[in-house]
């Protein structure tokens, strides 16, 4: 939206120069020349790309290699697809997958919907109120998951705040994190009640950029606020919704710190999620090969989901 069109084509200058160099036929020389010509560009990129190569690209490739190996301390053995087989025949993988699905299926739509509703309610308010609510909803997001999980664990404690509130209404205490029926629900509840600050802000920004003239037109046609919202606002927010759903899904599939700090996957395996399983394989059982294979499977699942959502929601939106 803040995109400026009609820039000077930066290739223009370059392409004219290229004419003079056409005679050189060796492709390697050509490449060298190209690099030489753009040496400043490459130099600007070099620092970032170096750390990227060392601390992201190399470890990623390494992880892929590890997934075909059994990592031992003094010698590492190639095991082909054994790790991947072990992922799909393992007793916990499907439990973890199912828990992760349930978490994602509840949390992502709820968060997006809550964000949409809150943003729609905030949008017509005056500037001061807007700023206030935006800050209130975003504030919990800036504190670390460690802090948030610590305090929720404390509130879910059998002597904690939530059971006290229940006792005020005469409801028996609930074993929030301790029982299989409640543990995952408790973690989901924490995710839903931690406000979707990012979503609210993005929706507000998107609503702010909807031209007032569209609303004018609707008003002249006699449409009420709800009709306007349904017919105009909602369709125009689709790109934001798509963005939030895709990002939310990627995030939810990686839910981990909460699980580690609050239930450690228990009771039984009621709250084991995919990343928690990966973490356990890697840093409790020290099956690095298996852990890498699990991580790669997770990556695949996330990709498929993101792709489906894109296809499904991305009917007439350009990105």
């Amino acid at each position: 939206m803040i995109f400026i069109k009609g820039q000077i084509n930066p290739t223009e200058v370059g392409s004219r120069r290229r004419l003079f160099r056409r005679k050189e036929k060796q492709p390697t020389m050509h490449l060298l020349k190209q690099i030489g010509k753009h040496k400043w560009d490459y130099l600007f990129l070099l620092p970032k790309f170096s750390v990227f190569l060392v601390f992201i690209a190399l470890p990623v490739v390494w992880a892929f290699v590890l997934s075909f190996q059994e990592y031992q301390i003094f010698d590492t053995v190639w095991v082909g697809l054994d790790n991947f087989k072990a992922v799909f025949t393992g007793d916990l993988f499907y439990k973890a997958l199912w828990n992760t699905f349930r978490y994602t299926l509840v949390v992502v739509p709820s968060q997006v919907m809550i964000a949409l509703i809150l943003a729609s309610l905030i949008n017509p308010l005056n500037r001061k109120a807007q700023t206030f609510f935006r800050a209130a909803y975003y504030l919990p997001t800036v504190t670390s998951v460690v802090v948030i999980s610590m305090v929720w664990r404390w509130m879910y404690n059998s002597r904690g705040l939530l059971n006290y509130i229940l006792s005020l209404v005469g409801v028996d205490a609930i074993n929030w994190l301790g029982s299989s029926n409640w543990a995952l629900t408790s973690i989901i509840m924490m995710a839903i009640l931690t406000p979707p600050g990012v979503g609210v802000i993005l929706y507000l920004a998107a609503m702010g950029s909807i031209p007032e003239s569209l609303y004018e037109a609707a008003r002249i046609d006699g449409a009420g606020p709800i009709t306007t919202w349904w017919r105009i606002t909602l369709p125009l927010l689709k790109p934001t919704t798509l963005y939030l759903v895709v990002l939310g899904t990627i995030g939810s599939f990686q839910v981990f710190a909460q699980v580690l700090l609050m239930t450690d996957g228990g009771p039984g395996y009621a709250t084991t999620t995919l990343v928690h399983l990966i973490y356990k394989s890697a840093f409790r059982d020290f099956e690095f090969g298996l852990a890498s294979a699990q991580a790669i499977v997770l990556f695949g699942i996330v990709l498929i989901f993101a792709f489906i959502q894109f296809k499904f929601l991305n009917t007439d939106v350009e990105y």
């Binding site: 074993n175 301790g178 029982s179 299989s180 029926n181 009771p267 039984g268 409790r284 059982d285």
Partner: peptide
């Protein structure tokens, strides 16, 4: 043992939850 222990303890938790 760590893996065996983990499974046993997980099931024990479920028994003590009455599940």
């Amino acid at each position: 043992w760590p893996q065996i222990d983990e499974r046993i303890q997980a099931w024990l938790q479920l028994v003590l939850n009455g599940e």
